[in-house]
Amino acid sequence: MPVRRGHVAPQNTFLDTIIRKFEGQSRKFIIANARVENCAVIYCNDGFCELCGYSRAEVMQRPCTCDFLHGPRTQRRAAAQIAQALLGAEERKVEIAFYRKDGSCFLCLVDVVPVKNEDGAVIMFILNFEVVMEKDMVGSPAHDTNHRGPPTSWLAPGRAKTFRLKLPALLALTARESSVRSGGAGGAGAPGAVVVDVDLTPAAPSSESLALDEVTAMDNHVAGLGPAEERRALVGPGSPPRSAPGQLPSPRAHSLNPDASGSSCSLARTRSRESCASVRRASSADDIEAMRAGVLPPPPRHASTGAMHPLRSGLLNSTSDSDLVRYRTISKIPQITLNFVDLKGDPFLASPTSDREIIAPKIKERTHNVTEKVTQVLSLGADVLPEYKLQAPRIHRWTILHYSPFKAVWDWLILLLVIYTAVFTPYSAAFLLKETEEGPPATECGYACQPLAVVDLIVDIMFIVDILINFRTTYVNANEEVVSHPGRIAVHYFKGWFLIDMVAAIPFDLLI
């Protein structure tokens, strides 16, 4: 008679799926529990143990900040960024110097990925580790590398530091407007667009060049630039800015003055950032001319202004700041037409079709709590990747769950009947059967004279019903998954307890 339990259901295979997918890609990662103190490590794979030199037993239950890997060259700011990422709910990448158990130093890129439950609360953290440099290539500990984003994938490793954006290309926007319009339909740009040429040739750093990471940081200074100062900065030398009595002219307006920039070969870094931020506020060169004239017309309804409409929906549905990093990277690809469009465009503009998908598509409701890094690593669709929660398995109709209350009560009843059979069957065979043979035949009273025979008949009927119930009862397979398919249940029961239950259900007393 089957006594099969499996009270692990309803099970959740999400954690096993993450481990299996990460292991298949030869990654070095740990999984931490966000619900406990210090976000203790609950799993670390073999790749991480080989990377740091510690065994799994030495890593388990330690804080996922990996303070046991810190050393003299470990930056405090990087460690603080990892700790801050564990307090938030967004994906974050941090470069930090770690030390192995043998004392060797290596520069590592740590990717902190939160995993949320159905309520939107962070319950786990996945920390992925990628070695960037070994100890002989690690720089000085005073050099802070965590304020910069990861290198873009479309640049060669040897040319990542030679990417320079020439400031004269930004200063000569109005001069290039006529050349853009003359391109017409034969050019790649839309009317009114501004073409910015980027020099990728390796050259020595000069005062006129600005690194790509500095251009990325310009967006942080746009908020500090007032509207009046932006307007004066875009007017140009024809209309000098008016300053109040006793007030000095704005240095932001002076930063885009061609006369002032041409007199000296070098520009201050602050002026460069502010000038680029001011130019980015204009949607095209037409807006710059309109600002000089004193009238700013409404933005025209053409394809170039609607190019950012799908980007707005993608940004609203993005799951991490990696989408913004990807957008900034692609927006700086050289030799393309940049349409400086305000994100607050007309909502009635139709979304044009684009061959290049900048932001990841909208994630469906079932995966809105899973970050983009987890979705990318697992390579699963929205119909396959579940949320991290207890999910009731989908069972067929008329199927009994093996952990249901009805099955528990039924098993206790069958257990009592088995005990009765084990006690009274030998007793009936030894004593009652002998008395029946010696006594007179009682054929007239039937079952009324033999109450134990009636009980034995009921017990046999219950055993037959138990066999039928076992054909529709779920079970737990070797992978700790609840199986509810009727065919698989029948095959599993035939290979197991079916023969024993059938022999126990045969009414031998009635056959004798």
Score class of each variant (00 low, 15 high):
A40L: 13
P240G: 09
L338Y: 15
S243H: 15
E357R: 05
F163Q: 15
E90G: 08
A190I: 06
E23H: 03
I96E: 01
G158K: 07
K373E: 06
K101N: 01
F22H: 13
H143E: 14
F98R: 01
Q75V: 05
Q11K: 09
S179T: 09
A172M: 01
D321E: 11
L200I: 07
R100I: 01
A34D: 01
L171T: 15
D286N: 05
D346I: 10
E91G: 09
H221Q: 13
P245K: 03
T201Q: 09
P249L: 12
A9R: 14
V110N: 01
V122A: 14
N339G: 12
V36Q: 05
G186A: 12
M291L: 12
F68R: 01
T375E: 06
G294A: 10
T162R: 11
P151L: 15
P10E: 13
L165A: 15
R301S: 15
K332F: 01
I336G: 15
H143S: 09
K364A: 12
S263E: 13
A169P: 12
T13H: 15
S153H: 06
S207A: 15
V112A: 02
T162C: 12
A57V: 15
I31N: 01
V3S: 14
A223G: 08
V341I: 06
A307H: 13
G184Q: 15
G314M: 09
L311I: 07
T65Y: 08
V180A: 13
H143R: 14
S207K: 11
S55G: 09
F106M: 08
A142D: 06
H254Y: 13
L86R: 01
A160S: 10
H7M: 11
Y327S: 12
S275M: 12
D119F: 09
A382K: 12
S104I: 06
L349N: 14
D259C: 11
R62D: 01
P298F: 08
A40Y: 06
F29A: 01
V110W: 01
G47N: 12
I288M: 10
L167C: 15
H302M: 12
G47E: 06
R5P: 05
Y327R: 07
A97Y: 15
F340V: 15
E214V: 06
C64N: 01
L296S: 05
A78M: 04
G139E: 13
A97T: 12
E95W: 01
G314S: 09
L210Y: 03
A223Y: 03
N12V: 12
A204D: 05
G381M: 05
Q376C: 06
Q75R: 13
F22L: 14
E372V: 04
V36K: 15
R77F: 09
A303C: 06
V3F: 13
H302F: 11
P310L: 08
G246S: 10
L173I: 03
G236I: 08
Q81N: 14
T375K: 09
H302R: 09
C64L: 02
G47H: 09
Q81D: 15
Q61P: 01
P151M: 10
A57K: 12
V94K: 01
V112N: 01
A79M: 06
P227A: 05
T65H: 10
A9D: 15
P63V: 03
A121K: 14
K362H: 14
K28D: 05
R252K: 13
D323A: 12
A307W: 14
H368W: 07
G53N: 01
A260N: 12
A277H: 12
H147F: 04
A253W: 07
A9L: 06
A40T: 10
S140Q: 14
H254Q: 13
E274P: 07
I82P: 01
N369D: 07
G381P: 01
E357I: 07
V113H: 13
N38Y: 06
K373P: 03
R164T: 06
R92A: 13
C52K: 01
Q11T: 13
A244E: 14
V222Q: 06
Q11P: 12
R273P: 12
Y43T: 01
G226A: 15
I96D: 01
P334S: 09
C49E: 05
C265D: 15
A9M: 14
P249E: 05
D355H: 14
F348Q: 14
P114T: 01
I336C: 15
T13F: 08
V131K: 08
V113E: 10
F22R: 05
F29Q: 01
P361T: 12
A228R: 09
D199M: 01
I42Q: 01
R312N: 11
I18S: 01
E90V: 13
A277D: 06
A97I: 06
G226C: 13
L385Y: 07
G71Y: 01
S250A: 15
T201I: 04
S255H: 09
E50Y: 08
G53K: 05
Q376D: 03
G53V: 01
F14M: 07
A142N: 15
D213Q: 06
P151E: 06
S264I: 14
N257C: 15
I126W: 05
C49W: 01
L15S: 02
L296G: 12
L173M: 13
S153E: 07
V325I: 14
